[in-house]
Computed example of a mutant assay.
Amino acid sequence: MIRKLAKAAVAGMGALIFPDKCLGCGKYIKKPTENPLSVCFCLTCLGQGMPVFDHPFCPACGRCFESGPDHLCGACLETPMAMQSVRAAFVYKGMIQRALGLFKYQSKLSLARPFERHLFQAFATHFDMDHFHLIMPIPLHGSKAKKRGFNQSYFLVRNFPRLYKDAYDRPPPWRIDISGLARVRATISQTGLDHKARKKNLTQAFACPNPARIKGKHILLVDDVFTTGATCDAAAQTLLAAGAAGVSALVLARA
């Protein structure tokens, strides 16, 4: 009897966490598949395209190519970024673009759990997971955090230590750091700005409150979307100026 009650309680909590209707079209989800996102989207919506980030791509900024081998893109050859490498879970088009909008701007937080699982898989696929000391979600300015109510980048990575321990049966060699990098200047939305305007918008937007925590560390930045890369690169420049040994970025979707 107790076991049945416990099972019912777990099922009830699951219904609260995960919707029984598709976030895309509103239809009931009949049966989730192995895809973590199938608890939030029906098979029809998933079929609209959630392209996985894969080769060929630029080994520096992660820009995807239609064919050929991996090679540096023209932008990286002309003006290298501060980051060593950028990798992603998805390409930013199709259903993943809509899903990220629901998560980020409409607070559909049920997407956080499946997103983090896809992102963790990308971490394991594209990086040496034992190389890093700190994993840092890109911070929001206090005014934006208050308005939105959550930092989407932190929600994507908050359970990484547990996922690592479950996968490798040991604690991770890195830790999640949410205070080593701060957003000290409120900026306007990057949407609609070109690369030059984005870089200007982010001038002196970040700071490291305690450089001693950063010095000599290999850091992985985490963000939701990478378009021109201005946000991640501005953060990387700040961390490197504070003494970081190297900075890379992992994002949910790469435009």
Rank of each mutant, 00 (worst) to 15 (best):
T187E: 10
L140A: 01
L181R: 14
G243K: 02
L239F: 06
A212K: 10
F132D: 11
V39S: 05
H218I: 05
Y164I: 13
C64M: 14
G243P: 02
K196P: 00
H118T: 00
V157T: 14
Q48C: 10
L100S: 04
I2Y: 03
A242D: 11
R198W: 10
S67L: 08
G74Q: 14
G142R: 14
S67M: 08
T125H: 07
R183D: 01
R158T: 07
R170Q: 05
K200W: 08
L102Y: 02
G49L: 03
N210M: 12
C76E: 07
E78W: 10
N151P: 00
K104A: 05
A230I: 14
A236E: 01
P139E: 14
F160D: 02
K217M: 04
D20T: 15
I138R: 03
G246D: 12
I29R: 03
L109W: 02
A205Y: 12
F103D: 05
R254F: 13
H141W: 07
G68T: 09
C76K: 06
T228K: 02
F226E: 11
H131T: 12
K144S: 15
A234P: 12
L5P: 01
R213F: 09
K217A: 09
Q106K: 07
I17C: 13
Q237H: 15
G12M: 04
G229I: 06
I176F: 09
R63Q: 14
K27M: 04
R113N: 08
G47F: 02
V91A: 11
P19T: 00
K31D: 14
H195Q: 02
H131P: 06
A242V: 07
D130Q: 08
G74T: 15
K147Y: 07
Y164T: 05
V222S: 04
K199T: 03
L102V: 02
A124L: 15
C45I: 01
H195Y: 07
K199N: 00
V10H: 08
T191G: 04
Y105R: 10
A242T: 13
K7S: 09
Y164S: 10
H55M: 12
L119N: 00
K4E: 15
R98Q: 13
F103S: 01
S110A: 15
P137G: 01
